[in-house]
Design a protein around this nucleic acid. Structure first.
Length: 431
RNA sequence: GGAGAGAUGGCUGAGUGGUCGAUAGCGGCGGUUUGCUAAACCGUUGUAGGCUUUAUACCCUACCCCGGGUUCGAAUCCCGGUCUCUCCGCCA
């Protein structure tokens, strides 16, 4: 959420920045209209309340009965006017705040211009795609041949875009999760969190999935609980409505959770394999910090995600995401992509997005009342929040299977994962 | 799931219709005293909006879990909800 004062004082600046991501400026004018009306009514109601408070105090020390009745009548009239104004105020507040909740964030000046993925800017690439001396297979074939990935039975029990991992496939996923957690906890200084996998509505509002992306969420209507689409939601909301001591910042959390997404919009896209499903596992890093350190935090966060890729020994590249492609609620976003040589089947390989590292500035913090205090007696200020995957599992699985495949159909286990797989060096077909 | 109790400032805990943003204690902060520490004493100590103003000053308003209601007036009375605790039942 943006600061209403900023909108009020620099509307043209706000409009110009929002235009970069293709957002219309009309909504700003509507908000300003509501804001002006709101403040006018609040001032009016405040004055009337003051009048009533003074009058009511006089009531206790009133002398004559006639005077008392007259005062009572006058106060009752005042009360009626106040409730009338409050009624209008309630409506206006609701209109204004629901508009405020739909506004995007203002992009950082470093966000490149552009509408599509093609306009993202390459920041760095590490490693070169492997050249094969045999014809490599896509992961769905590798997985099926090894008996570690069962797409058909996933569909049978849960519907399209669900899959089953089996044997060494399930173990590989578990190894990746543990590897990522250990890396970010023991070497990158994060505290591990195990959060609930369902949250209240207000949490989704806090991190901005609601109201905008309601149709992408799995929602239990009976208890109004929502399956988390990412660990970002429960973990960032851990400190909602809190005022943190400055010396506790930055807070660095890492959490493994499954993620649930309807992905209604993308029917027909990325249908082959396990690239895009309704349920996937992810290890997510979340940071809460003071405003002046969030840029450094974003870069360390991105570096930590890159390190996970580096240790897997798979080529990756880091992209600075352009205005039209980045998440509309962050200020700056880096995507990290792992090379997958046959992910598009006969069309060949592609860079798979396995992490998205974003700085949200105070946007989420405002929505969830997440503040900190620099020192005793100082005014509370909004924190900055960030998050980034470290990493998203199915796509890492794709990259591992496709990059580490051998001519005989087996898959070499990346050295860094072997300690998490009872020393297994190679996944081969089994009964 | 059943029965009962409760929710008040950073914490503990008073307050049952007006003089209550709220007694008191603890903690915190400032000060006095003081070889040091401790103790004692004095003072101070919430959030947000109106509101960027020379000023974190003054003033006004709201907030005692949340939402409604009664009333001239609600922390206090009534209704609904949420959460917590105790006991019982059930269960990884």
């Amino acid at each position: 959420m943006l600061d209403i004062k900023l909108i009020r004082e620099q509307p043209d600046h706000v409009k110009a920045k929002m235009a970069r991501a293709g957002t219309s400026a009309d909504v700003i004018d509507r908000i300003l209209g509501y804001d002006e009306e709101r403040r006018r009514l609040e001032t009016e109601a405040g004055g009337l309340r003051n009048e009533r408070n003074v009058g009511s105090k006089g009531m206790a020390t009133c002398k004559g009965e006639a005077e008392r009745e007259a005062l009572k009548t006058a106060m009752r009239a005042l009360g009626d006017r106040i409730s009338e104004i409050d009624g209008r105020l309630g409506g206006i507040n609701e209109e204004q705040s629901s508009l405020m909740l739909t506004l995007p964030n203002l992009p950082d000046a470093r966000v490149p211009e552009g509408r599509t993925e093609a306009e993202n800017v390459l920041v760095r690439q590490v490693g070169e795609p492997r050249t094969f001396d045999f014809v490599p297979k896509p992961h769905w074939e590798i997985g099926a041949n090894l008996g570690i990935l069962d797409l058909e039975r996933g569909v049978k029990i849960s519907g399209s875009r669900f899959y089953v991992l089996k044997g060494a496939g399930a173990a590989l996923q578990r190894a990746l999760i543990t590897f990522f957690l250990d890396l970010h906890v023991h070497e990158h200084g994060h505290t591990e969190i195990y959060p609930p996998f369902v949250v209240k509505r207000e949490c989704l509002v806090g991190t901005s999935q609601l109201p905008k992306f309601e149709d992408n969420q799995y929602h239990d209507v009976e208890d109004d609980l929502w399956l988390v689409p990412t660990a970002e939601v429960p973990v960032t909301n851990l400190h909602r409505d809190e005022i943190l001591d400055a010396h506790k910042l930055p807070i660095r959390y890492v959490a493994y959770t499954p993620c649930f997404r309807r992905e209604k919009m993308s029917a027909g896209r990325d249908v082959r394999g396990i690239k895009r499903g309704h349920q996937f596992d992810k290890v997510e890093m979340v940071r809460i910090c003071a405003p002046e350190t969030s840029d450094a935090e974003l870069h360390s966060l991105t570096g930590h995600a890159e390190e996970a890729c580096r240790r897997l020994g798979i080529p990756f590249r880091t992209m600075l995401v352009c205005a039209g492609e980045k998440g509309e609620f962050n200020t700056l976003q880096y995507d990290i992509e792992l090379w997958a040589p046959k992910s598009k089947g006969d069309e060949g390989g592609e860079w798979l997005e396995v992490s998205s590292c974003s700085n949200f500035g105070d946007f989420q913090a405002r929505r969830m009342g997440l503040r900190f205090r620099r020192e005793k007696g100082a005014k509370p200020e909004f924190c900055h929040t960030l998050n980034g995957s470290g990493l998203a599992l199915p796509r890492v699985m794709i990259a591992v299977l496709e990059n580490y495949q051998n001519e005989d159909g087996s898959v070499t286990v990346p050295p860094v994962l072997r300690q998490y797989m009872s020393g297994l060096e190679r996944i081969t077909a089994r009964e």
